[in-house]
Amino acid sequence: MKRILILLLISMAFHHVTKAAILDSLYLIKESVTYNATTFYKGALSDSLQPIQYDNAVLTVQGSSNDSIVIMNMDTIDYELYLNTDNNQTWTITAEDTLTIELPLLDWGTHAILSTTTEGKLLGTACILQVDLQADHIYSWDQWDMNNVLSQEIAAGTEISIPATYRPNVFTINADPLAPMDTSNALIHGYVGDTILISVLNSGNMVHNIHFHGYHCTILGASKQSDRVGWSKDSFPVMIGETMTLRLVPDQPGVYPVHNHNLATLLYNNNYPSGMMTMIKIYE
């Protein structure tokens, strides 16, 4: 009887592994980051601890399979996670524990795993899921905002919400407050006529928006603005917790900025241009 039970457990474990391929192992972190002498706390579902990657992971997902993600909680608090396109999909990961989460079957487009736990929600802990995207180039932009002093209070647990007097001074794309620089992974490269897909997530605490120079893009998916799917736009909002999928087919070469048109977000340490601006570089 004992032998049968062991075989049954092995069989169940084997069945579990074959059913759900593990996409990646991610680290749930809450770390202080220093750019140009200003320090702020950032939460992330990170790909790497050595060196620490502060930007959220971007995973390629096949919508037709129940893929899994292993998450190692490196923090000393429990976290609640959820799928932004299906609030019924939630997971709890206890402090300093490891959890394998199985994704449901997902529709084509961009989804995200976000956190309802105060620290994760306010500090931008997330993971972008790109489901069945196919194009010449696929990129992602994760917009996040914070006040650097407030972030330290949130990380310490002394502040648990965004105050009415919220005045963010840190604006990032892919966790980088210096996104216009050539070192940023937010930069987009391509050739005239290429199809470029861009996944967008607003993991921040206020509505952001995007303005393209040089081109209009087509909104292929928007988790909170379904009425705008199919629109060709150069300026549009990204709601809090929203994921969008944009298609850009450049018809001219050149180097063009793309940025938030709330121009108070194009700053870091009062230097312009910084913050929520990056560049599109299109070659002939």
């Binding site: 303005h211 120079h213 040089g214 081109y215 209009h216 150069d234 300026s235 001219q252 070469p253 050149g254 180097v255 063009y256 900025p257 241009p273």
Partner: peptide, 15 residues
């Protein structure tokens, strides 16, 4: 803004 002009006419000092 929104006219999708070429880089030379885009009016951005850095480009």
């Amino acid at each position: 803004h929104g006219l999708d002009v070429d880089q030379a006419n885009d009016g951005v000092p850095s480009t």
